[in-house]
C-alpha cells in the first residue's frame, strides 16, 4: 500500500551511508521539497545516484546536497554544472563514478527489471572501457555494466492518485520512471494528489505497485514561479 505522508516523514528513513537515487535533470523533474528536507535533516555520507548535478551554477535541487557536503559517493554522467561537486571531486573528498548517460539509465532499468546487466558499445576505446568485462555477441564486442539499485529513491511526478499511480508531465520524466523500479523504498513527490480513477490508465507513467509513499510537493503554479525566477536570474529567460 502506498502511504500519503509529509516530506519530513518521507526522508526520515534515510540514514547515514545509504544509497539514494534522486530523479530529475538539472532541476526539472526533481523532487525539490524532498531534497530540502534531506538537506534540513543533514544526514551524511550518502551514496547518491543522480543522472547529472545541480542546475547550472550550483546550489539548486541536488546541488543543495553537495553544498551541504552530504554526498560521499556519486554515480552520475555529469557534474560540470555543479562547481561544488567539481571542487569536492578534485580535492579527493568525493568519489565519482562517471557513466555515459545512456549506460547510467540502462543500469538502473536493469536493477529494477531483474536483468543481469547492460551490454553497450558506448565508451569503446576510451578510459571508461579500461578494466571492464567484454562480451562478444553475434560477432560484435560489448562492454558489460552491472545493474544499479538503491535503498531509497526520491522521485518526482506531476500527479499521483491515492493508490500511488503516477502521471508525468512535459519532459519531466527523465530518470524518474526507471528509478521508481530500482529502489527498496520509493517516495514520489507530486504537484497534486487526486482520487483513484482521475488518472486514466493509459496516462499512468509509473504503476502504483512501485510507489511506497506519496508526498504532496509544491503545486504547478508555485513551481512555475520558482523556475521563472531561476531562469530569469541565470539569464536563460527574457
Amino acid at each position: 500500500m502506498t502511504e500519503i505522508i509529509d516530506a519530513e516523514q518521507a526522508v526520515r528513513n534515510i540514514r547515514e551511508g545509504m544509497t539514494v537515487m534522486i530523479g530529475g535533470f538539472l532541476g526539472v523533474g526533481e523532487p525539490l521539497l524532498l531534497i530540502d528536507e534531506l538537506v534540513a535533516g543533514g544526514v551524511g555520507k550518502l551514496s547518491l545516484i543522480a543522472v547529472v548535478g545541480s542546475y547550472p551554477g550550483g546550489g539548486f535541487g541536488v546541488g543543495k546536497l553537495s553544498r551541504n557536503r552530504q554526498i560521499a559517493r556519486l554515480v552520475t554522467s555529469h557534474i560540470g554544472t555543479d562547481p561544488e561537486l567539481v571542487r569536492q571531486y578534485l580535492a579527493g573528498d568525493l568519489e565519482v563514478e562517471f557513466n555515459p548517460m545512456g549506460t547510467f539509465i540502462e543500469r538502473i532499468r536493469c536493477g529494477g527489471g531483474g536483468l543481469g546487466g547492460v551490454l553497450t558499445r558506448t565508451g569503446f576505446g576510451t578510459e571508461v572501457a579500461a578494466g571492464r568485462a567484454r562480451i562478444e555477441v553475434e560477432g560484435e564486442e560489448f562492454l558489460l555494466y552491472t545493474p544499479l539499485k538503491a535503498d531509497v529513491a526520491l522521485i518526482k511526478a506531476h500527479r499521483g492518485d491515492r493508490l500511488g499511480n503516477l502521471e508525468y508531465r512535459g519532459i519531466a520524466l527523465n530518470s524518474n520512471p526507471a528509478m521508481a523500479m530500482a529502489a527498496a523504498y520509493v517516495v514520489a513527490e507530486v504537484d497534486e494528489i487526486v482520487d483513484v480513477g482521475v488518472i486514466a490508465p493509459r496516462h499512468v507513467g509509473t504503476p502504483h505497485i512501485f510507489v511506497d509513499a506519496l508526498v504532496r510537493g509544491r503545486d504547478h503554479q508555485e513551481r512555475k514561479l520558482e523556475f521563472t525566477d531561476l531562469w530569469v536570474d541565470s539569464g536563460r529567460l527574457q
Binding site: F25, L26, G27, V28, G29, V51, Y55, P56, T81, M101, G102, I105, E106, R109, H158, R169, G170, I171, A172, L173, N174, S175, N176, P177, A178, G205, H220, R223, K224, E226, F227, T228, W231, R236, L237
Partner: peptide, 26 residues
C-alpha cells in the same frame, strides 16, 4: 509560456512544436 516541466539538456526553458513527443531517458 515558460513551463517548469519543459527544459533542454542544458537546463534552458524550451517549447515543443506541434507533433513533438516527450519520453524518459531510457
Amino acid at each position: 509560456a515558460a513551463d517548469p516541466d519543459l527544459a533542454n539538456a542544458g537546463g534552458e526553458p524550451i517549447t515543443l512544436l506541434p507533433g513533438a513527443a516527450t519520453f524518459d531517458l531510457a
